[in-house]
């Protein structure tokens, strides 16, 4: 019986070893096959399949890279965040509400410059909007519970601009760094989360 268990464990270990080795080869093959089997359409150009270092590392580590790697990548992502020239983080929460609702942008069926934030795809925000996703945390009463401070406004601006500066392999797109949203749009979203008058905080 013991022999059987040891044998089974050894086999499992051997298989795991092989699987790890093969995984790298299959990742490289996937990269090559995607580049061969996909084609540009509309604004979705082929350079989108050139993995960035961050995308490559998050793929390799199934979104959980070693701590030192996370620190290095997050610092690099933070450098891509461009703070508003006028030093103001808040726009208009009413415009922000529309941007949060829109799921458009960056697909091959979208035109350039017609992106929204797709916020409700993943987050709960205003209690009035009951159609919301759960891929991200609920942001209900975001400003009210965390405090309407300038530091929090800055945090929200940076987080929307580049979520990977805070969580290396975050599922959330880098809305500012990728040019999906403009500075003004991000400010409107900050207001949607941080203005005491916004329905998010009611």
């Amino acid at each position: 019986m013991n022999t059987k268990i040891i044998l089974a464990a050894a086999c499992a270990a051997a298989l795991a070893g092989c699987a790890t080795k093969d995984e790298a080869a299959y990742r490289a093959q996937a990269d090559a096959v995607l580049k061969r089997d996909f084609q540009a359409r509309g604004i979705a150009t082929m350079d989108r399949l050139d993995q960035t270092e961050l995308q490559r590392i998050c793929t390799q580590y199934h979104d959980n890279p070693p701590f030192e790697v996370q620190q290095r990548l997050e610092a690099a992502e933070m450098k891509t965040v461009k703070l508003p020239a006028d030093g103001k983080f808040m726009g208009d929460w009413k415009r922000g509400a529309r941007i949060a609702e829109s799921g458009r942008g960056m697909t091959w069926s979208d035109k350039p410059g017609e992106a929204g934030g797709s916020c409700y795809n993943c987050h709960q925000l205003s209690p009035q909007q009951t159609s919301f996703g759960t891929l991200g945390p609920s942001l209900l009463q975001f400003g009210k519970t965390r405090g309407y401070t300038e530091a929090n406004q800055k945090y929200v601006y940076e987080r929307i601009y580049n979520s990977k500066a805070f969580n290396t392999c975050s599922t959330m797109p880098r809305f500012g760094s990728t040019g999906t949203l403009t500075e003004a749009q991000i400010k409107d979203l900050v207001a949607y989360l941080m203005d005491p008058e916004s329905p998010v905080n009611k």
Binding site: A30, V33, L34, C58, C169, T171
Partner: peptide, 17 residues
């Protein structure tokens, strides 16, 4: 195995797999 690798492959404008 290739399909599995494609399933976990993060790329594109929004870093999604």
């Amino acid at each position: 195995e290739l399909g599995k690798a494609i399933f976990f492959h993060r790329a594109g404008a929004w870093d999604l797999s």
